[in-house]
Design a protein around this nucleic acid. Sequence first.
DNA 1: GCCGTTTTCGGCCCGACTGTTTTCAGTCG
Length: 596
Amino acid sequence: MTKEEVAAALDEIGTLLELKGENPFRCNAYHQAARMIQQLEGDLHELVASGKLAEVRGIGEALQEKIATLVTTGRLSFLDELRASVPAGMVQMLRIPGLGPKKVKALYEQLHVRDIGELKAACERGEVARLKGFGDKTQAKILEGIEFLQRQGQRVRLDQALPLAEELMEQLRRGGHVQQIAVCGSVRRRRETVHDLDILVCSEAPQPVMDRFVRLPQVQQVLAQGPTRSSVVLVQHIQGEKITLQADLRIVTPSQYPYALLYFTGSKEHNIRLRQRALSRGWTLNEYMMGTESQPILAKTEEEIYAALGLAYIPPELREDTGEIEAAERGELPVLVEESDLRGVFHCHTTASDGRATLEEMALAAERLGLEYLGIADHSQSLTVAGGLSPQAVRDQWQQIDRLNARLHKVRLLKGTEVDILDDGSLDYPDELLAGFDYVVASVHTHFQMSREAMTARVCKALAHPAVTMLGHPTGRLLLKRDGYKIDLEAVLRTAAQYGKMIEINAQPQRLDLDWLHVKQARALGVPLVINPDAHALPELEYVRYGVMVARRGWLERRQVFNTRSLPEVLEELQRRKQAWLSASPARKKSAHRSH
DNA sequence: GCCGTTTTCGGCCCGACTGTTTTCAGTCG
């Protein structure tokens, strides 16, 4: 078993134990072990064989033994027995927002509800509201939650789909007869979630490639198999999560490849526009060719196809028919920001709050990544669950940063904070303290259930505060798990534009918040954006790549992303903003000096 | 389940919020 599979098995044990009402600490030990296994460096088989597993924090004798059994035999009777004693539908019920193990257990024991379908029926009959500990509101919330789940369907996040696609392509390449290969569809367009993988291969010997594809180890079911196209259901463990999704393989000849690449990348809406354009020139356009039977328009690349249609090359991220064709016609497509344009980041956590790496470790990692500046933004005091910093802890961190900056040469640490926006829109630190930071990220972490009006007013009030530099994860959404809080984002963007505030593209792949459509809106409003990793651990610094994907889908150019600026430019801008505030309130100027 | 210069038992992060109750259980982060 792989690391991912072992982690998934341990996680499942923890969940099943929860559903059985086991000691929560025992359950958590399994979840914790799953996380540790997942982030282990090195080969799990070797770690087991060498006994090094014992050195991993949170893995004792019992877990070592279970992990060893899983790794070597691929099974665990303890898990099999647990699975047999808990209906599989109960685990699914946990995905309903607001439903935890205790409630699911009560529903099963008292109403014999075994899965989401039965739960829905029980809610509709009003039985759930009559249970002790439940009520009308809980029942309504459950129904709402079920609807949410069904709306999401079977989609997976981009950060799960991309590595899976890469792995499939590598396996196909290794089998030979593959001249070119690409992942198309929504993955190539970098949609934040996708529901299938479209792999395109160009080969002069399609049969062996196709045979190999349907026999890949991840393939659970073959839905269709033909000479040029096959569909399968894949099952793969990624980041300790079991992923099920469909994958299609198409195989074309070398001369067909550019047309197929364009066609299968989509979007459907974009393709329709292109075909209309071809038609107006008397041509047909499909996945195999463009032009007429007698006079094909030969193209070796997508660029040449676009050029033949009188268009500049449109990057896949823009192919949504949201104005890209008109822009390409006029030669006004944006030159999209690239990962290599980023010079630093502004939203990272350390062990001072809920991060897993120390300030120094983060700094050294940033140096290795070649960043010019690393903004530290730990949580503020009222977010005690995430280890929010007291004012004294903030001042201690400032001193640490000064000391580190004195000996670091390649990277400069910036003093930031992720200050909570309290429910009344005020900030979680006094102005005197806020004045001592280089910049301030303001975020909502509590009171998600407000009305849209109240939440909008709350966030806008925070944006209007002169200390605030940027708004963190503007909607609080978790992809496929939780809708963002209700908020009028356009009003927020307008407020940001009015006060000259920046908006974060939170690049945590489970957030990707702001979403691309609103990024595009922000761009149109002239609101500067910042791509932040919201890193809670060293590897998460590299999450910015997903933020760049969102930025590109949002048409952003380099100059519209604040952290593409050099350190001197950034320092100058932050200083300018601070001066504007402090000169308007002289009393704070003094305290800002004192705190340094 | 794990862990231990509080070391083999008794903690383990815990406070806020919601919706249920009439003092608190469950969920969330």
